[in-house]
Amino acid sequence: MVKPTRVTNSIRAHREQQGITQAELARRIGVTRQTLLAIEGEKYSPTLELAFQIAREFGVRLEDVFEYPGA
């Protein structure tokens, strides 16, 4: 059985706050909309590089977008 990621994120909240659509953010970070959907839904862990890219798009630090339990 596939275990979804334990990494949680607030991508949707940041996206909605800044008025960015899923398609637009996906285009900016170079992934498909389905992959962004999977990351937002916490079904897929982004690579460290992708996580940094997402945080940079929102103009915040990595830990403002992504969290790991116990950290």
Binding site: V2, K3, P4, T5, R6, A38, G41, E42, K43, Y44, S45
Partner: peptide, 9 residues
């Protein structure tokens, strides 16, 4: 298919 539907860690 399961990885696409349910997620991949």
């Amino acid at each position: 298919v399961i990885a696409y539907r349910r997620g991949l860690a």
